[in-house]
Design a protein around this nucleic acid. Structure first.
Length: 275
DNA sequence: TTTTTTTCCTGACAGC
DNA sequence: TGCTGTCAGGAAAAAA
């Protein structure tokens, strides 16, 4: 479940390992992996392209090459590995192998096959790419005023709004729980019931928590384990998510786990105010 | 138009 | 041991 901090960690690691490498050969083994192109077309277009730069928008990872913008969404369990020798062909979860000019092999691994890739002719305006059509502003640019304006007519609960990538991009289930816990707002609160101060608090906590998680190289729980040999450490700083039955650090009441719109949600019913 | 539900996937795990 | 059922969950598509 890579959210923005995990994607940023992958980006940083790839930058160190394969920047300026040229892609010599592309092999895609899962036909649904390229979302906007056929497998063969995707393979041929990326071959012989040099990787110039990496970028991130929300949970999307981008590779800028000489002619194309190559965008990857890892979804649930997508991972990249860089190997010095050709990977084990018996590994049924490796869905793409990129042979590099450096002698390395960039491998895409995805147990549940949810991840997707997109390839477009290079553009100056990254946000205008079709795959970002329904993607809002990155969490790093989200202000309290913006969130306030975006929630005035919303009858949805605030947690669903935080998970909605068309509002703020980059927040997933783990950090949404942490943000609302830190902001002391009940995840079931109706979004339009929040006032300006609430929105300012949520925006501030979003930036603080996601930036701290980036510092810690992300969170390693359940399916998001190591990618590129990097183990995130932010799970040690989680206050609410996965803490069912544990004492709330503020009021010492037990953290509760509920289902909200089908998502596991952890919060403190005592000190997170419902609005 | 906005919101909710379903679908895509497979491994882990509980219960029998 | 082996089977069945449930759960995890991001986001697109379908339904309401």
């Amino acid at each position: 479940m890579p959210e923005a901090p995990e994607v940023q960690t992958v980006l940083t690691t790839l930058e160190k390992q394969i920047r300026n490498a040229r892609i010599e050969k592309v092999e895609i083994f899962h036909e649904k992996l390229p979302e906007n192109l056929g497998v063969h077309e995707f393979e041929k277009m990326l071959e012989n392209q040099k990787i110039l730069r990496f970028f991130r928008l929300g949970k999307y990872l981008g590779f800028e090459t000489e002619e194309y913008d190559w965008i990857v969404h890892l979804r649930m369990e997508g991972k990249f590995f860089v190997f010095d020798s050709y990977p084990d062909p018996k590994d049924k979860h490796i869905h793409a192998i990129f042979s590099l000019s450096t002698g390395q092999y960039l491998c895409y691994h995805d147990t549940r096959k949810f991840g997707r890739m997109y390839l477009y002719p290079k553009t100056e305006d990254i946000a205008s790419l079709p795959c970002f059509q329904n993607v809002g502003i990155d969490f790093s640019k989200a202000s309290g005023t913006y969130l306030f304006d975006r929630t005035r007519n919303s009858k949805r609960d605030i947690k669903s709004v935080l998970l909605d990538q068309s509002v703020i991009a980059g927040i997933g289930n783990i950090y949404a729980d942490e943000i609302l816990y830190a902001a002391r707002i009940d995840p079931r609160s109706i979004a339009s019931h929040l006032d300006r101060d609430d929105c300012e608090t949520i925006a501030a906590q979003t930036k603080r928590i996601l930036n701290e998680a980036i510092e810690a190289k992300g969170t390693t729980i359940r399916s998001y384990t190591s990618s590129l040999g990097v183990e995130g450490q932010y799970q040690q700083q989680l206050r609410a998510h996965t803490k069912e039955g544990k004492e709330c650090e503020q009021c010492h009441q037990p953290i509760q786990k509920i289902k909200l719109k089908g998502r596991s949600t952890y919060f403190c019913p005592e000190c997170q105010v419902r609005k």
